[in-house]
Write a protein that binds this DNA or RNA. Structure first.
Length: 679
RNA sequence: GCGCCCGUAGCUCAGAAGGACAGAGCGGCGGACUUCUAAUCCGCGGGUCGCAGGUUCGAAUCCUGCCGGGCGCGCCA
């Protein structure tokens, strides 16, 4: 369909050349605000008219005359409107036939081309995941799905910061406050991440007044950095157990990873020291002899665009005690990710899903695998880390042999906070600062937040109640599956329906809603499309594919669509082959404008996916899927399919229902929203 | 102080790279289930697109200034 728009745009371009002698770039294809204005709109006459000093309306008339004389594929007629818009009216039958033919073409066969890394989740492995982390993982997972849909080879990374203070604090709690050793920590009951959530808050509070504990934290950090000593042993158990919990939580949502990269390995396997040597050789890194940062290795950022207004733009990479900072290790990881450093890693299996997907982890032992060395990459990290990410981007670009600056993208998004109402309902004590604010920021340190598993559990239980009410006879197994599917839909849709730059003020009541613009609404529409075809199979013994190929087997109707499909003809009186003229007649009727609108929506699919990828905006897909579901629900009420007596009307509606089912399911799959059997 | 982001209906948000009467969901009011499932659909009410200038044939959209809100600017991560 994209090409059809391009074809028409090119026709307009030609018309302009013929009429005015002006060579213009391919004109922008607009969407008219109302159906009376046609299907495509061009403003060239307005732009050009003023430029050439000619009345736009008159110029438009000449262009229309030219365009009307010269046929353009897919265009039935042209009209002039308003101050001088050129409006094209599609040949509706032709477009529908083309739409049907395009349905199975946009699915990527096998991934090929340069590899793209999507890094997401990367939660500090010291506590349970909360809904802010969920936004990250869901956005990242959806992005990966979008890229895969476009045939891009995607590698999903989850970066594990196993050597930082966050882990150290929990180790401190387990060892010093609870008196546990590694073995005891290993045998703590689940949910381990919940226990650590509380412990982390407790330690944070204690550290404020307990100087002895604060001193101990320093030792723990050193132990973690070096990977030596009993604290490091405990730390390793904590990290491993927490990561397993995080992956279980994400698996509930259908989110999987290809590789876990441990920050500790970056140091122990000399990835950092190699990177450091490279950086030192460049002009971007220098040793500070004096002043505030005396004894530190610094990254030079003064003079770099974006940093010029900072008071002290340069950034510490190596502390005066010789330890690399978080950014430094992150830079090393990114350099490795983009193939700027030799790969020192070996890989072991970390886990395997029921479906057989393996998550690997980097380390000193295991087998060689072709991870890393990507052409492009996205780091899904919230906008609060924009400053650090820009430093990483500068470092990566400075190391690139070709000087490319577009290889690394910080996929930034705003945070998830809590509405005061929800914070209150959860019993979170509000500080006086919080009182007057529009939302309450979550904080792992203070234990303020909604845990991801808690949200999923509440959604699941609520879904279960709803299902039982509507469908009391459902067997327990199906009930369980369905409740979880609905919970996934509700959670995933809620976290991607906002644009990236919108702070989500999480409101439990809104999130628990299953009506209106929600994930379950999409599922309901998808289930309904399915039930039509199920009924058709039961009553007539005709499968969907048979039905569609029957209708499209008329002269000209398919225009190559379903050409591979066998021309099955359903029984007399149920469906009949339609000709191109019949499609035109049905869709041309004024009262069928709703059907035509749906056809146009469906035709947008590929363009919508492109837009979503280009703008890295998953909400575009969410809105689109919602629009499809909405259009279908309207159609469902207004236009019965199986009951419709006129076989021509019936046939067209069936085609649209089929196309809709296909596209809606695809869109939902891009969002990771499952389609239930029934609801 | 400097930088980035945001300000659109009572509430929560879209607005497809400047276009033709500003949209959706929720909430409110009123309707539609012997019909392919009412987690649905239909109707009604509701907006000086924060304010002021500017660019343009045309601005919610681009530019400048101001007001209001959020976030960031560590030898933490």
């Amino acid at each position: 369909m994209t090409d059809l728009r391009m074809t028409v745009a090119a026709a307009v371009q030609d018309a302009v050349a013929a009429v005015t002698g002006e060579r213009i770039p391919l004109p922008h294809v607009g969407d008219p605000p109302r159906p009376e204005f046609g299907d495509l709109a061009f403003a060239v006459a307005l732009e050009l008219g003023h430029k050439l000093g000619r009345p736009p309306r008159q110029l438009a008339e000449e262009l229309i005359a030219y365009l009307t004389e010269h046929d353009t594929e897919g265009v039935q007629r042209w009209e002039i409107a308003g101050p001088g818009f050129l409006n094209a009216f599609f040949d509706r039958g032709f477009v529908l036939g083309r739409l049907m033919g395009s349905l199975h073409q946009s699915v990527s066969e096998t991934a090929q081309g340069p590899k793209v890394v999507v890094e997401h989740t990367s939660i500090n492995p010291n506590k349970a995941a909360h809904i802010g982390h969920l936004r990250n993982s869901i956005l990242g997972d959806s992005l990966a799905r979008l890229l895969r849909h476009q045939g891009v080879p995607v590698e999903v990374h989850n970066y594990i910061d196993d050597t930082g203070v966050q882990v150290a604090d929990v180790v401190l709690g387990l060892v010093d406050l609870r008196g546990l050793d590694a073995e005891a920590v290993r045998s703590m009951p689940d949910p381990f991440d919940y226990a650590c959530w509380d412990l982390y808050t407790e330690v944070t509070a204690r550290l404020e007044s307990d100087e002895r504990l604060a001193a101990r934290r320093h030792d723990v950090l050193v132990s973690l950095e070096r990977g030596e000593g009993t604290d490091a042993e405990v730390g390793a158990v904590v990290v491993e157990r927490i990561i397993r919990r995080h992956l279980e939580t994400m698996a509930r949502l259908g989110i999987e990873y290809d590789l876990l990269v441990h920050e500790g390995d970056i140091v122990s396997m000399d990835l950092w020291s190699t990177a450091f040597e490279r950086l030192k050789a460049s002009e971007h890194v220098y040793f500070s002899e004096e002043g505030k940062h005396s004894g530190c290795w610094m990254m030079r950022l003064s003079g770099v665009s974006g940093f010029e207004d900072l008071e002290e733009p340069d950034k510490v990479l190596v502390r005066s005690n010789g330890a690399a900072t978080y950014v430094a290790k992150d830079i090393a990881y990114h350099m490795w990710r983009y193939g700027e450093l030799d790969n020192p890693f070996l890989y072991r299996k970390f886990s395997e899903s029921e479906a057989g997907h393996i998550t690997w982890q980097s380390g000193a032992e295991g087998e060689k695998m072709p991870f890393g060395d990507a052409d492009h990459g996205f780091s899904v990290i919230d906008v609060r880390q924009a400053y650090l990410q820009s430093i990483v981007a500068v470092a990566v670009a400075s190391m690139d042999p070709d000087g490319r600056t577009d290889r690394h993208t910080h996929f930034d998004y705003e945070m998830v906070a809590l509405t005061p109402r929800t914070a209150k309902a959860l019993g979170i004590p509000l500080t006086s600062d919080d009182q007057g604010r529009p939302f309450v920021e979550m904080s792992g340190r203070r234990g303020v937040g909604v845990k991801a598993d808690d949200l999923l559990n509440v959604l699941r239980d609520r879904a279960r109640d709803e299902v039982m009410e509507r469908n009391p006879d459902l067997p327990e197994g199906e009930l369980k599956t369905l409740a979880l599917q609905i919970a996934i839909a509700a959670a995933r849709y809620f976290l991607v329906k906002f644009t990236r730059k919108t702070v989500i003020a999480f409101d439990l009541e809104d999130a628990l809603n299953f009506e209106g613009e929600t994930g379950p609404y999409l599922q309901y529409a998808a289930v309904r499309t399915g039930s039509i075809f199920e009924r058709m199979q039961d009553d007539w013994g005709v499968s969907v594919e048979e039905a569609v190929s029957t209708v499209l087997s008329g002269p000209g109707a398919g225009s190559g669509a379903f050409s591979g499909a066998e021309r099955v003809v359903a029984a007399d009186g149920e469906l009949e082959p339609l000709s191109l003229d019949q499609l035109r007649d049905v869709l041309g009727e004024k009262e069928n404008d709703t059907l035509w609108d749906l056809a146009l929506q469906l035709a947008r699919f590929d363009r919508v996916v492109d837009l979503a990828v280009q703008s890295a905006e998953v909400s575009v897909i969410a809105k689109y899927a919602f629009t499809l579901a909405q259009e279908f629900n309207r159609l469902y009420h207004k236009y019965p399919i199986l009951q419709e007596e006129d076989l021509t009307e019936r046939g067209v509606r069936l085609l649209l229902a089929y196309a809709l089912r296909h596209r809606l399911r695809q869109a939902m799959s891009l969002l990771g929203i499952p389609v239930p059997e029934r609801m």
